[in-house]
């Protein structure tokens, strides 16, 4: 079953004097349980594509279906709610809420979903244990290393039980040990729980782990390789 379906996606930026074709007719589908990396040089359209998939930006042309829903037809408030219930985000700079503890950060998204307190606490603790941070639940982000913060971000992304997780350069700010650790955790979650992960990355270590590698150049897919 296709989790994500993208047809003839185009994005033209008119903000500068020169028109920029950030995406130039992208067709793409992701199935449940994929562990995919979108790669390409800077300016190839990786981030633009990820923003479109996450409903954070609108394409100039094309269609995006997530779990069968055409997200471009949703009103902005319905799209926010759709993101909350269907998409998990992991950002390059972790982007945790600095005034909340690790546990509260993971709980927060479930509170937005109005999950009962007891249930969300149990799930948040379980997720933090899964990412190896069961002993750091009460630490604020400033007391955690970059790798640990990114693991909290992964736990947060999974807390909402999304259809898939979008991770924008998740290892860009991590050292090799933290990167390996994070990738192992995400791969394990992917294999055990069949969670779909889509990364944009420059990092060869991520590319090596991915079972599908999509290469973008000048806003077009130039290769889409699936490893066995």
């Amino acid at each position: 079953m296709n989790v994500i379906e993208v047809k003839q996606l185009k994005k033209i930026y008119n903000t500068t004097e020169v028109k920029v074709n950030a995406l130039n007719g992208v067709d793409l589908t992701f199935e449940q349980g994929e562990f995919a990396a979108i790669v390409g040089p800077s300016g190839s359209g990786k981030t633009t594509l990820l923003n479109m998939l996450g409903g954070l930006d609108e394409p100039t042309e094309g269609e995006i279906r997530i779990g069968g829903t055409n997200i471009l037809e949703l009103s902005s408030s319905k799209l926010i709610d759709f993101r909350l219930r269907n998409i998990g985000f992991v950002f390059q700079a972790y982007n945790l809420i600095p005034v909340l503890t690790a546990l509260e950060n993971v709980e927060f998204i479930m509170q937005l979903q109005e999950v009962p307190k007891k249930e969300r606490q149990q799930r948040a603790i379980a997720l933090l244990e899964q990412v190896g941070l069961g002993d750091r639940t009460n630490s604020r982000p400033s007391k955690l290393s970059g790798g640990q913060q990114q693991r909290v971000a992964v736990a947060r992304a999974l807390a909402s039980k999304p259809k898939f997780v979008l991770a924008d350069e998740p290892t860009a700010n991590l050292d090799s040990k933290s990167t390996a650790n994070l990738l192992d955790i995400m791969e394990e979650l992917n294999r055990k729980e069949n969670i779909t992960f889509v990364f944009s990355t420059h990092d060869q270590r991520v590319v090596n782990k991915a079972r599908r590698v999509i290469t973008l150049e000048d806003g077009q897919i130039i290769s889409d390789l699936k490893k066995e």
Binding site: G54, D81, R83, L84, F89, N95, I109, L112, Q113, S160
Partner: peptide
């Protein structure tokens, strides 16, 4: 700005 952007991205609606 960044934090608010993240909150809106993960699904915090305008009212909240």
């Amino acid at each position: 700005t960044k934090e608010l952007g993240m909150l809106m991205a993960i699904g915090m609606n305008r009212v909240r």
